[in-house]
């Protein structure tokens, strides 16, 4: 008799739970999803800059040609250039127009030499410049382009200095970045690659990375070996939301010509510039 009562109560409870799931659980689930997406959009700052970091030996003017090529329409986008000096002071030129939401910002370094130690220093200087920029312009998300060793500086900055609770990098495009320096054997890991792999868990989970590899022949762009660019997969693959490697060949695919390469300009237009304020998040992130 008692067992029967328990079973009856249990059955009734199950029916009620099913009804509650249908009438409450599902609408609540869909509301939460749409509410959080809306909140994410509202939380983003209107200013959504593209921050470019040149490679070794290059100055703040490295991307002038690229930006001229991107500024083909009637509306010119702003360009702000920062050079971080060795004494940690910033030299700033250019400006961000008041209503421009997608300005270009170039961060270059007075000490722009090659080498593991210098790149580490440059990542630290980049953090200094970023701190200045976020405080002055109050933005909380940005996109990035790094050419050559600029891509290494970017990756080191992301792993060591980016405060993900305050700042979001949604897309990063590295152009001809030698993740394994000049080493052609993928099985031999140089110090920079080892460091980047050891800290890869610190990379933003929602980041989309596009690694562009230019080749004048089957193995190199004249300076950076194709295999070195490919080792980026050991850093980004299964770590960030999306990692795509693209190979560009033909005219202007020599290492120093890459930023002016028409294919690459088209890729920047498509993957970095032609994106909504929301970025790639909704599809890529689980929570």
């Amino acid at each position: 008799m008692r067992k029967k009562t328990v079973m009856q109560s249990f059955k009734l409870l199950i029916i009620i739970i099913v009804i509650l799931v249908a009438l409450v659980g599902l609408p609540a689930y869909f509301w939460t999803k749409s509410h959080v997406t809306k909140e994410r959009v509202q939380n983003r700052s209107r200013l959504y800059p593209i921050i470019l970091v040149p490679g070794s030996s290059a100055t703040e003017n490295r991307f002038d040609g690229l930006i001229d090529n991107l500024n083909t329409g009637n509306k010119k986008t702003s360009l702000l250039k920062i050079t971080v000096k060795e004494n940690n002071h910033l030299r700033i030129s250019g400006k961000i127009f008041p209503r421009d939401t997608r300005p270009f910002i170039v961060i270059a370094f007075q000490n722009n030499h090659d080498g593991f130690r210098n790149i580490q220093k440059q990542a630290k200087w980049m953090a200094l410049a970023m701190d200045y920029l976020t405080r002055k312009y109050q933005f909380n998300h940005f996109s990035g382009i790094g050419h050559s060793n600029g891509g290494l500086v970017y990756t080191l900055f992301l792993e060591k200095y980016l405060d993900q609770n305050k700042l979001l990098l949604d897309r990063l495009m590295t152009i001809g970045t030698p993740y394994n320096f000049a080493e052609t054997n993928m099985n031999k890991q140089t110090s920079i690659l080892q460091e980047l792999i050891s800290r890869k868990e610190k990379l933003p989970r929602s980041l989309a990375v596009y690694s562009i590899d230019g080749t004048t022949n089957y193995t190199t762009d004249g300076i950076v070996p194709s295999t070195s660019v490919s080792t980026g997969k050991y850093i980004f693959q299964n770590q960030v939301a999306q990692y795509t490697k693209i190979t560009v060949t033909g005219k202007d695919s020599q290492h120093s010509d890459l930023p002016q390469n028409k294919e690459i300009i088209q890729l920047i237009n498509e993957y970095i510039l032609q994106t909504g304020v929301t970025g790639p998040d909704a599809a890529n992130t689980p929570q």
């Binding site: 909140e39 994410r40 609770n165 890529n284």
Partner: peptide, 17 residues
Amino acid sequence: RANLSAALIKNNLEGLP
């Protein structure tokens, strides 16, 4: 609020303050 702000910026719930 600090957690919410961090979660909205980084798009996930890992490593919140």
